[in-house]
C-alpha cells in the first residue's frame, strides 16, 4: 500500500465513525493495540519534547525502510501516536520526508497536531522527519 493509499484508508475508516466521542474512543483503542515500548527504551534520550503527556520514539532500519516504535503515558496521545507510527513505519526516508500526515486534519484531529498545543505530537512528526533525514544521509553514504 502506498502512503497515499494509507491516507485514504484512514479517512474512509473515520467516515464510518460517528461524532467525536466515537472517534476518540476509536483512537484510544488504536493506542491500546499499539505494541508497548520496552520499559528500558522509555528513557530521557528517546523522549519527544512535549509539555504534558510524554511520548517516547525509537527507530529501527529494515533495509531501505524505517520502522518506528513509540509509546505515550496518555491514552489519547498514544492513540494518535499509534496512527503516526502505523502511517510512517515501513516507508523509506524520502517518502517520510515528502509526506505530511494530512489524514490528521481529514479526521478532525488537527487541533492535536498544532505546534502550539503542548502534547508533543507536532514534535513527534518533526522528530520522525529528523530521523528520516538522518537515515537518508546514512543510507546514501553506505551506497557510495
Amino acid at each position: 500500500m502506498t502512503i497515499e493509499e494509507k491516507q485514504d484508508r484512514i479517512a474512509r475508516q473515520f467516515e464510518l465513525l460517528g461524532d467525536w466521542p466515537e472517534r476518540y474512543k476509536y483512537i484510544i483503542k488504536l493506542g491500546q493495540k499499539l505494541e508497548p515500548l520496552d520499559e528500558e527504551l522509555k528513557v530521557e534520550e528517546n523522549l519527544v519534547r512535549g509539555c504534558q503527556s510524554q511520548v517516547w520514539l525509537v527507530t529501527e532500519q529494515d533495509d531501505d525502510k524505517i520502522i518506528f516504535k513509540a509509546d505515550s503515558d496518555a491514552a489519547i496521545t498514544k492513540g494518535l501516536v499509534a496512527m503516526l507510527v502505523n502511517f510512517y513505519s515501513g516507508e523509506n526516508p524520502e517518502t517520510i520526508l515528502q509526506t505530511d500526515p494530512e489524514f490528521i486534519e481529514e479526521i478532525g484531529m488537527q487541533q492535536h497536531l498544532s505546534p502550539t498545543r503542548s502534547n508533543g505530537l507536532a514534535s513527534m512528526v518533526k522528530q520522525m522527519k529528523i530521523y528520516a533525514m538522518a537515515y537518508k544521509s546514512k543510507m546514501g553514504q553506505s551506497v557510495q
Binding site: 466521542p21 476518540y24 504534558q52 496518555a74 489519547i76 496521545t77 502534547n119
Partner: peptide
C-alpha cells in the same frame, strides 16, 4: 492521564488546566 481528562472536558466546553 490528566491530559486525557482535560481533552474530554474541553470537548464538553469545560476549561481546566492539566500538566
Amino acid at each position: 492521564h490528566a491530559s486525557d481528562i482535560g481533552t474530554i472536558l474541553d470537548k464538553r466546553g469545560i476549561a481546566v488546566r492539566t500538566g
